[in-house]
């Protein structure tokens, strides 16, 4: 039996204030020009409850742009592994980003496990927040089946007229409800309001592209030789924005840095992008994806084709960030439409 509680809207601030005293709380904050970021908050006043996907997804807390893997000492010599983690709660995670975290969890817990990621994950409590309406025209969360909650959170908030309906989905979530307080049992009125809101969503959220969820894999698996990749490649500037902002991109480079004593230092990993020219280049100079079109094709295949084989799910969440962030206006929905059209 699902467990629901409610939080009165006027109690949200007290809840966030008290929660932030027990652990750092990250939440979406407005930065102007339709830009939002996840950052530390200590009250609900700073939080943008109605926001479009943040510039960077919450993956930055699970898999930071730069993190230390080990420290070394040249003279010993010794390499000491480092596992960093930090206790925190992320409030206000949309369903698309919950799906992104689920994808990363699958990758990093596949054997051999990535315990640098797992150590951070252990410290993070996730509080989701439902989108009652579309964020903007770039989203394709309906066709990716991520417009409704599919798990992946400890607590999940849905905004109703006078309160938040809160789904309690884990022991960690239940502890917050009990320890922080302010919550009441859900009444039949709230349950009915939730059902009405979901019914409205079914009217609003429709497939955003000219292909159904199940058809996407076939469209991409058959599209290796499509002309679309040349067209996209001609526009692409290989900046890597699309992969940096993607909630399911996790490629990285490993780099050594040396301290000023020229003896000790750290080895860290930094986000890398398959859109960079050298990404698939090997020592002899051979480059398996020299053209920008090939690299864009690779990015799309890693969302709609390869992971279905490996993890039985799409690695596109429909958040629309790649299209929003693209300087050359390469648009995911348009790409899918063009490929679907070609296949007909």
């Amino acid at each position: 039996m699902d467990k629901f509680v409610t939080l009165n809207k006027q109690d949200l601030n007290d809840f966030i204030v008290k929660l932030s005293r027990s652990q750092p709380v990250m939440a979406p904050v407005a930065r102007g020009c339709k830009s939002f970021v996840f950052e530390s908050v200590d009250s609900a006043k700073a939080i943008a409850l109605h926001y479009i996907p943040t510039i960077l997804p919450p993956k930055k807390y699970f898999f930071p742009q730069r993190e230390t893997l080990l420290t070394y000492n040249k003279t010993t010599p010794a390499w000491d592994p480092v596992l960093e983690s930090r206790k925190m709660a992320i409030f206000g995670v949309h369903t698309c980003d919950l799906a992104g975290i689920q994808c990363l969890n699958m990758v990093m817990s596949a054997s051999p496990q990535d315990n640098n990621y797992n150590a951070r994950k252990e410290g993070i409590t996730i509080i989701g927040l439902e989108c009652n309406n579309y964020c903007d025209e770039y989203a394709s969360c309906n066709v990716m089946d991520n417009h409704l909650p599919n798990g992946g959170y400890d607590l999940f908030f849905t905004e109703l007229p006078d309160a938040f309906m809160v789904h309690v989905n884990s022991n960690a979530g239940e502890r917050i409800v009990n320890d922080i307080g302010f919550f009441s049992a859900a009444t039949p009125k709230h349950t009915q309001q939730l059902e009405e809101m979901r019914a409205r969503k079914r009217e609003i959220f429709k497939p955003e592209v000219k292909a159904g969820h199940k058809q996407l894999r076939g469209i991409f698996a058959g599209a290796f030789d499509s002309r679309q990749w040349d067209r996209i490649g001609e526009r692409c500037v290989a900046c890597g924005n699309c992969t940096n902002v993607c909630p399911t991109c996790y490629c990285f480079d490993v780099r050594d840095e040396i301290n000023l004593d020229f003896n000790t230092g750290t080895r860290g990993r930094v986000w890398d992008s398959c859109q960079n020219e050298e990404f698939a280049q090997v020592a002899g100079g051979e480059n398996f994806r020299k053209q920008r079109g090939q690299r864009q094709r690779h990015r799309y295949m890693r969302k709609f084709n390869y992971p279905v084989e490996r993890f039985s799910r799409y690695f596109c969440t429909g958040c629309g960030r790649c299209s929003r962030a693209c300087m050359a206006k390469i648009n995911l929905k348009e790409t899918i439409d063009a490929l679907a059209e070609e296949k007909r």
Binding site: P112, D114, C251, F252, D253, A280
Partner: peptide, 9 residues
């Protein structure tokens, strides 16, 4: 870059 099936290279 990683040897453990994560880095993507």
């Amino acid at each position: 870059k990683c040897g453990v099936g994560k880095c993507g290279h």
